[in-house]
Structures are given as structure tokens and as C-alpha cells.
């Protein structure tokens, strides 16, 4: 596989799992070698994260609980100080400060982080003040957030007495008040009904369309498939997969086979397979266009012939859920 393919797939030259998406000039946040340890005696929560977040994109940050998503988000929000590695904003060569990160970004945390005893309007007013907004600038931002999150009819109601979905919308609206360049959404649809989820997802799509960069964490893969254009999967403090979503799931008419092998596929193997329409997903996994079952049989035979032992084969139109579980399984298998 040549380097352009690697780049496209988000695999870096640094090593098999030091995954890196494309280095583009429109990168809003560029992270390299980011590591974090909460306790000197504890294991690293993040172990050398390299990640570029493209301006205006919607990045789905996926991973199991405890993988390091929250730590990464908190560092990118300026909540946790940077220990190791570098974060750069807007392609700037200077290292970013915590204050700059806070001013650039905003977060809608998983918790309903507002005051239930205050009305919706009073909550917005307080957090607007906390962001340093007042007067006309605050009113403009409030109008925008209220409009996007459809809160106009709820402004006078105590936040503790509105429905779960409405609370989620308020949580999102507060995050929009400081007009952030990057919006971090930490499971913004957890625990709400499908109609409210649809409203929030529509709001997020609108926000993204308006040019805001979104980093979205969720355990609902279908949501990520719907709204995200990039996906980064994090496991055990490392990014194990980082790719445009279109390369991971195959919504085209062409069926593909996802084939996992037991040993890494090296340059020699790739040269031997050069005649096939294939993409490397990970060093031990590839995706190949398959037209019929006979075609699949010959592909598997070819892989066997060049010395690769087949571990698992899935066939059909891929789903993000499959990719996610494969990536996590692969990450677990490579942990030593």
C-alpha cells in the first residue's frame, strides 16, 4: 500500500497503530503526541494521541467507557491542563494555551449542567454572563441558541420542570452561547425519546452546516453515521482508527468483504494484492470489493496463497457498528 492510501485511511508512517488523518491546511485543532496521566502511579489515560480535526467537520469520537474520550475532550476544552504533547489551533505554529482552548471551544456535557431551580432564560442569562457576554452581544447569542434549540416557548419555565429532551436542548443551547468554533458534545442524546433525539440531531446538523466544527461522542452508532463525516475510535488511551466515515461504511451498491488476518499485511503482501480493489482498514484488516461469492472464494484463496491466515470474514454493506467492534477487538488483541 502506498503512502497516499495510508494517508487516506489515516494510518501514519510512525508505526502500525500511530494513526493520523490527513494533514490539511484547514485543520482547526492539531494534536500530536498527547499523553496524560492522572496519577504518577497510575497507567496513562492517554498514550500519545495524534489527531487533526478539520474545520467545519463533525468528528465522531468513539470508544468504550474509560477509553480516554472524556480526558481528551477535557484537555481540548482547556479543563485539564496539557501534560505532554502539543495542541495547535488553526494551523498556528505556536502552542495553544488553556485559555485559548476555552475561548475557542464549548462543551455540552453528558450531565445536565445547569440549575434546575432557575428558569430556562435565567440559566441562559447566567451562563451568558459566565462567558463574558452582556447587552446586545448576549441577546444576539441567546436568540441564536434559543432558535437553534427550539426553546422559545420554554423560556419562563423552571429548567427542572421541563422534559428530558427539552433539558438536553437547554444543555446544548448553553454550549452555543459563546459562539464556539469547536463544539464538544458528550452523548447529547442519552436517555431521551426518539422525537427529542431527532430534534437534537437536526439542531446539531444545522450547527455543523453553519460552519461550526463538532466533536461528537456517543454510543449510538446510527447517530454517528447520520451526523458525522469523520470517525476516530479511541481505546485504552490510543486512537486505533481515524478515518472519514465514508471509507469505513459502504453505503454504495457495491458489496465489500471485510477480511481480518492474523498477522500484519506488509508491503510485499500489498504488492501481491495490487490487482484487487482493496483498502487497508488497519494493518491486519482490509476491505475488498466483491462482485459475487465465486469472487470472494478466489480472494480468500489468493490471501492464503501469499501466506496470510484468515481470521474473520464479513460480507455485505458495512455498518459503523461492525467497524467499531472490529477496531476495539483489534486494539485489545494488540495490547501487551
Amino acid at each position: 500500500m502506498d503512502w497516499t492510501i495510508k494517508q487516506a485511511l489515516g494510518i501514519s508512517q510512525k508505526g502500525p497503530m500511530a494513526v493520523r488523518i490527513m494533514l490539511r491546511s484547514d485543520t482547526i485543532i492539531s494534536i500530536s503526541g498527547l499523553a496524560h496521566c492522572y496519577d504518577l502511579n497510575a497507567d496513562y489515560a492517554l498514550k500519545g494521541i495524534d489527531l487533526d480535526i478539520v474545520r467545519g467537520s463533525c468528528l465522531g469520537l468513539l470508544g468504550p467507557n474509560g477509553a480516554g474520550k472524556s480526558t481528551l475532550i477535557n484537555i481540548l476544552n482547556g479543563v485539564i491542563p496539557l501534560q505532554q504533547g502539543e495542541i495547535r489551533l488553526n494551523g498556528d505554529s505556536a502552542k495553544v494555551t488553556q485559555k485559548q482552548l476555552r475561548r475557542t471551544s464549548s462543551i455540552a456535557p453528558q450531565e445536565l449542567a445547569f440549575y434546575p431551580r432557575l428558569t430556562v432564560q435565567e440559566n441562559l442569562s447566567f451562563f451568558g454572563g459566565a462567558f463574558g457576554l452582556s447587552g446586545a452581544s448576549y441577546r444576539a447569542q441567546e436568540d441564536q441558541a434559543v432558535s437553534v434549540c427550539k426553546l422559545a416557548s420554554l423560556m419562563k419555565r423552571p429548567a427542572g420542570r421541563i422534559s428530558g429532551g427539552e433539558k438536553r436542548r437547554l444543555n446544548l443551547a448553553i454550549a452555543l452561547l459563546n459562539d464556539p468554533d469547536v463544539l464538544f458534545l458528550d452523548e447529547p442524546t442519552v436517555g431521551i425519546d426518539s422525537q427529542s433525539r431527532r430534534t437534537i440531531l437536526d439542531a446539531i446538523i444545522d450547527i455543523n452546516r453553519d460552519g461550526k466544527t463538532i466533536v461528537y461522542t456517543s454510543h449510538y452508532m446510527e447517530e454517528v453515521e447520520t451526523i458525522c463525516d469523520h470517525v476516530a475510535i479511541i481505546a485504552d488511551g490510543r486512537i486505533v482508527l481515524n478515518s472519514p466515515i465514508s471509507r469505513l461504511i459502504h453505503q454504495s451498491e457495491t458489496p465489500r468483504a471485510r477480511i481480518s488476518v492474523t498477522s500484519p499485511i506488509d508491503e510485499t503482501h500489498q504488492q501481491l494484492l495490487s490487482g484487487m480493489q482493496m483498502e487497508m482498514l488497519t494493518p491486519r484488516e482490509l476491505s475488498i470489493v466483491v462482485t459475487n461469492s465465486a469472487d470472494l472464494s478466489s480472494i480468500l484463496a489468493k490471501l492464503h496463497q501469499i501466506g496470510l491466515t484468515i481470521d474473520r470474514v464479513s460480507y455485505g454493506n458495512g455498518k459503523l457498528d461492525d467497524v467499531y467492534h472490529d477496531a476495539i477487538r483489534w486494539a485489545e488483541s494488540t495490547q501487551c
Binding site: G78, R102, S105, F131
Partner: peptide, 13 residues
Amino acid sequence: NLGVQRRLLTTRM
């Protein structure tokens, strides 16, 4: 407990 403290860390307050 509400998470407001954490949220406030991302503000200017």
C-alpha cells in the same frame, strides 16, 4: 454534582 462546576471551567468565570 450537577456538572456546572466543570462547565464553568470552560467559561471565563
